[in-house]
Amino acid sequence: MKPAAVLAVARKEVRHLLRDARSLAQMFLLPAMMLFIYGYAIRLDVVHAPIGLLQEAPDAASRELAAHVGASLAFRVVRHFHDRAELREAVAAREVWAALVIPGDYARELAAGHAVVQLVLDGMDANTARLMRNYVLQLVNERALAMGRPASMVTVQARTWFNETNESRYAIVPGVIVMVMGVVGALMTALTIAREMESGNLVMLRTTPLTRGEFLAGKLLPYFAVGMIDVLGCVAAAVYVFEVPLRGSLLELAAASALFLLVVMAQGALISLLAGNQILASQMVQITTFLPAFLLSGAIYAIANMPMPVQWITAVVPARYFVALCKAIFLKGTTFAVLWVHIAALSAVLLALGLALLRRSRVLGLQP
């Protein structure tokens, strides 16, 4: 091996890197993004989780237990309920992740030697529900020991709603559908347009009366059809293979999926126009779709457990809104009348991406 030859090739590669500013920026940006996202977004514990309290009797023992729960760093008491109907509505609307019910006879039963409290958990995120149950058990036991009583003196009767069997796949499978749709939809679109730019086929198209809008629509339409077939296949596998209950409307789920698919396809098309070649386009798709969809969408890790700056960043991640739609339609049977905020957010993202795509499509050289 000749050192001079090795150095000559290395100098050539350094010049190439310095000329290719996009690849060089990506080499530094990707590690920084991964370190930031993995370091801040992933939390396997519960911090300031929203919880509600229902005290059926205003006695001192109930107030002491409620105060002990509210003082914990694990929970943030956001609601004090007046009755169980109000509690059901709050849990169904995801205003609270759990609700602790202190019965009216709690003080009397505690004085008699054994008391029972009830804990209602939202099972849309099975892992978080299990963590919250363990935290509540610990807090109740701590309170009993502080009173000089045995920990077994207070029993916590936990009930998980929307996921009675506490199966983690109930929450994971709808989230995986979102990640699959996001990556596949964006990647298919990005590669097909980048391929046309890379191969030089656009030169021939410029001699035709084809407009930029017609070119983009014609390119996206077949992949939209394929994507919707993939959606139906994923939903069928979720229901019949993984046995995840579909409690909501299949039509509403299909409509939400179509909207999200349009968003990620517009994102993929914009990426291809910015990248100009298939390799860079595929890498940009992985960074801008897979990582955010996996870590910042709420599919695996609860957004409310993340630091506030990271929660603000998730507001621009389209997968966040589709994850909320998917889980609510699958597990709760929620309708668009309740989920309109997520629909509006996805529509706004689609509009912004569409305008940016039309503006950037000038590089195609086709007619406006």
Rank of each mutant, 00 (worst) to 15 (best):
L250I: 07
L24C: 01
V120C: 06
K219L: 14
L339H: 02
R360E: 00
E109C: 11
V173E: 10
N166S: 12
R320Q: 10
M27Y: 15
S199Y: 15
F336R: 02
E167W: 10
L355A: 12
L131A: 11
P174H: 07
E252S: 02
H80W: 15
P31Y: 12
Y223M: 08
A107S: 15
L131Q: 12
G218R: 09
P222C: 02
A146W: 05
G123H: 12
D83H: 10
E13Y: 13
R206C: 06
V9C: 06
V244E: 09
F322I: 12
G333R: 02
V341N: 07
A237C: 12
A93P: 01
L364C: 03
L54G: 02
V14S: 05
Y135A: 14
V183H: 05
R143G: 12
I172P: 00
A236C: 08
A71F: 13
I229T: 14
S249H: 00
A61Y: 07
L131G: 08
A194I: 07
L216M: 07
M181F: 09
R206S: 10
Q55A: 15
A90M: 04
I303N: 01
G148T: 04
R15A: 15
H80I: 13
Q278Y: 05
A129K: 01
V47M: 10
L137I: 11
G248P: 01
A99G: 12
L54N: 01
R94H: 11
